[in-house]
Amino acid sequence: MTQNRFPNPVLDAVRHSLGYESGAPLPPHPLLPSARAAGTPQAEIALLLQEIDKVSGHTQQLTTHNLDTALGALVETENIRTATVWNTPTLQCLDIAGRLKHLGVTLVPPDAEKHTLAQCDLGVTEADFAIPDSGTLGLLSGPEKPRAVSLLPAVHLALLTPAALRPDLHQVFAEAQHHGYLILITGPSRTADIELTLTLGVHGPRELYVWIFESPGE
């Protein structure tokens, strides 16, 4: 930090205004408020579901036994003909892709070209993090977790287990900051740009489904 590796007039102007010598040690930054303490797992899950409902997400608690029923209902309600699913261990273990195929849904690989993905009605992901008090999901990205799966299709289904729960943003950030990408999702896309009237489903998904599995696959 002490060398001027970026000789440029902007940095020079900043230094000049501040009157500091380049290379002066940086004092520690102000103490920050501590994170919210976690409640019991049941309380956290209940809070998460409540908050997601508040932002117009659709929530369900499931086991593998009622998964097919739930998927069937989703496919019918939202008229799902094509879908794309992340290739993560949990989703593979639950065989989401297989179950959807069984319901007559056409599957598209998640890393398909954007125009193809844009034709999908449903994108299925896993949530790496879930923050109860704002009803927020956190999704990282990677070759098995392409970003557009939770973006292009009109319906986004996010599955999660209690292991994803984090009490506050602080814990999520501590873990996520080492990754190249994080998206925090709180409800379906929305705008109030026209006369402040709330409209759901602008550019991102119009519907957000969040399903919690107590024990994903035996």
Binding site: E51, V55, D133, S134, G135, T136, G142, A176, Q177, H179, G180, Y181, L182, I183, L184, I185, T186, G187, P188, S189, R190, G204
Partner: peptide
């Protein structure tokens, strides 16, 4: 409490 999408982008895709 939080906006619908808060994006954290560190560099181009890997």
């Amino acid at each position: 409490k939080l906006s619908t999408y808060t994006n954290f982008i560190t560099g181009p895709r890997k």
